[in-house]
């Protein structure tokens, strides 16, 4: 991964039009010395300064206290994200409509016909019953909204993938509703970068192609040529790094 990381940094530094990272880095060359970039810095940088590849895809507006942030993802990059697991009839249901669309696009990229949840939970339940869903791809808030439906189902789902930045007791007890439960740590601007389960929570295994450092919070690098590459990105999350069976881990605080 070291070679790929070095190539990515070189590509980003030399990019003729997108200058976000190059201007941030200055003359620093060692990976460990590159200054970390924050969500706020992304929000302040025009999209043109952080668009490191052109092509088709989906754009989204992210909202938080730092103001709206426009992000773009290519379909190939969405396909490479480990959001869920193969299923026959997945239900995609997130509180953030943009997250729902991204996860539904992921389903199509993996040859699944997704049922996308409408914003009315009662309609979602009716649709889930009609489609006889066998898997759920959601965030913690939407999982809570679906708990009455999941409780009343006769058979457990094949899988539930909870994609979020924090995991409540509802997510941790989702094993009642499915044969397999994945807790996927992801930020909309970075995609997924670590995975856990109710049994191993709060310990997360860092996903392949991702590197997580601790420096006043978790700092993420993804060795991938994304529209806006993720290189030493301040996630705003806290955790204690470790290692298990040769895989990088951290305990989410």
């Amino acid at each position: 991964m070291e070679k790929e990381l070095s190539q990515l940094i070189h590509f980003v530094r030399e990019h003729p039009t997108a200058r976000l990272y190059a201007e941030k880095w200055g003359t620093e060359t060692a990976f460990e010395s590159l200054p970390a970039v924050s969500r706020k810095e992304l929000a302040c940088a025009p999209m043109a300064s952080r668009r490191y590849k052109e092509g088709g895809g989906m754009a989204r507006v992210l909202r938080d206290a730092d103001g709206p942030l426009l992000i773009e993802w290519s379909y190939a990059d969405i396909a490479a994200e480990p959001y869920g697991v193969p299923a026959a009839r997945p239900l995609v249901y997130f509180a953030d409509p943009g997250e729902s669309l991204t996860a539904a696009a992921w389903c199509y990229e993996h040859n699944m016909v997704p049922l996308i949840g409408e914003q009315n939970a009662a309609v979602v339940v009716r649709a889930a019953e009609a489609y006889q869903v066998d898997a759920l791809l959601c965030d913690g808030r939407s999982l809570t909204a679906l708990e009455p439906y999941l409780t009343e189902r006769r058979a457990p789902l094949e899988s539930i993938s909870v994609v979020d930045t924090s995991f409540s007791s509802g997510a941790l007890s989702a094993a009642r509703y499915a044969k397999r439960v994945r807790l996927v740590l992801a930020l909309p601007e970075t995609g997924a970068f670590a995975e856990s389960s109710p049994d191993t929570y709060p310990t997360f295994s860092v996903l392949p192609g991702c590197m997580v450092e601790e420096d006043d919070g978790l700092i993420l690098t993804k060795v991938a040529h994304l529209v806006t590459p993720v290189i030493r990105y301040r996630t705003g999350l806290r955790g204690l790094p470790g290692k298990k069976n040769g895989t990088q881990t951290f305990a989410l605080a």
Binding site: M58, A59, R60, V61, E72
Partner: peptide, 18 residues
Amino acid sequence: AGDSISLSLDGLDLGQGL
């Protein structure tokens, strides 16, 4: 051509900064 890009807006997006 593989180069079109779409942005789907939500009612919640209609605020400051849009």
